[in-house]
C-alpha cells in the first residue's frame, strides 16, 4: 500500500515538473489529490466482503448462516471495526508520508472539508455494498476469483480515479463514468478537498451518490435472497 503510494506520488511529481502542474491542476493540488487519496484508499477500499465469495465456494457460508445474527450485518460491523483500526495505523503512516515528502499540499476550507467528509462517508458505504454485490455474484459463478478480481479490483482501480484525476481523461470517458459508482468512491470526495470549483454542484452530486448507494443496496438484498435460495437448494 505505502509502496504503491510512493510510486504514484513520484510519478506525478515527475509528470508535473515541466509545467508546474498538469492541465488545470497545480502541483500542490496534485500532491493533495494523491496524499489525501491515500487516506481514502485505506478507508474506502479496505473491506473483507470478499470472504463471502470465498465462503460461498467453499461451503463455509453454512457456518455463518447457523449463527443467530444477520450475516450481512456481521460483515458490515466487522468492516467498520477494521476501518477504525486502519485510522489508528494510518495516522502514523500519514505522519510518515508528510515527514518524508514535506510536500506543498493544498488544504480545504471548513466548508470544503465538510463536503469532503460527507462524500467520504458515503463512499465507504457505497463501496461496501458494491463489493458485496460483486461477492454475492459468486452464487452464480463457479470460479470465484476471476470476476471478483475484474470487478472488485481492476475496474475499481482504473475508474475510481486512483491513478489519474478523472477529468484529465478524454471527456467522453469521463462522462460515461459519471453513471457508474466508481468516481463517487474516490474522485469526487478528494476533488472537494483540493478545489472549490465544484462547490455549486455539491448537492446534486451528493444526491447522485445516495441514489447509487440505494441501487446497490437493493441489488445486494436481491442477490442475497436469490442466492440463498440457490445455495440452500443445492443442500450444501
Amino acid at each position: 500500500m505505502l509502496v504503491s503510494f510512493f510510486i504514484l506520488f513520484y510519478f506525478w511529481a515527475a509528470v508535473s515538473e515541466t509545467n508546474q502542474g498538469v492541465g488545470s491542476y497545480t502541483r500542490p493540488q496534485l500532491y493533495a489529490y494523491f496524499i489525501v487519496g491515500y487516506v481514502i484508499r485505506t478507508l474506502v477500499f479496505s473491506t473483507r466482503t470478499g470472504d463471502i465469495g470465498g465462503a460461498i465456494t467453499s461451503g463455509d457460508l453454512s457456518k455463518h448462516l447457523l449463527r443467530p445474527l444477520s450475516v450481512l450485518k456481521f460483515f458490515f460491523t466487522r468492516d467498520l471495526v477494521d476501518k477504525l483500526f486502519n485510522i489508528f495505523f494510518m495516522i502514523f503512516e500519514f505522519a510518515f508520508i508528510l515527514f518524508i515528502l514535506k510536500p506543498q499540499m493544498i488544504l480545504p476550507s471548513p466548508k470544503n472539508l465538510f463536503y469532503f467528509l460527507s462524500l467520504l462517508v458515503l463512499a465507504i458505504v457505497i463501496f461496501f455494498f458494491y463489493s458485496l454485490v460483486v461477492s454475492l455474484a459468486t452464487f452464480w459463478t463457479d470460479q470465484a476469483w476471476s470476476h471478483r478480481w475484474l470487478f472488485g479490483v481492476v475496474l475499481v482501480n482504473i475508474f475510481s480515479g486512483q491513478a489519474i484525476p478523472l477529468d484529465l481523461l478524454p471527456t467522453p470517458i469521463f462522462n460515461i463514468l459519471k453513471f457508474t459508482p466508481f468516481p463517487y468512491l474516490y474522485y469526487y470526495p478528494v476533488k472537494f478537498w483540493i478545489d472549490d470549483s465544484l462547490n455549486a454542484s455539491f448537492l446534486p452530486l451528493f444526491i447522485q451518490s445516495l441514489l447509487i448507494l440505494l441501487v446497490l443496496f437493493f441489488l445486494s438484498r436481491f442477490f442475497w435472497k436469490k442466492g440463498l435460495i440457490k445455495y440452500q437448494g443445492y443442500g450444501n
Partner: peptide, 15 residues
C-alpha cells in the same frame, strides 16, 4: 495507454 496519452495532451513532455 490512455493515461499516458491524457497526460501528454496536458503537458507536452514528461521530463
Amino acid at each position: 495507454l490512455i493515461i499516458i496519452n491524457s497526460i501528454f495532451k496536458n503537458t507536452g513532455t514528461i521530463k
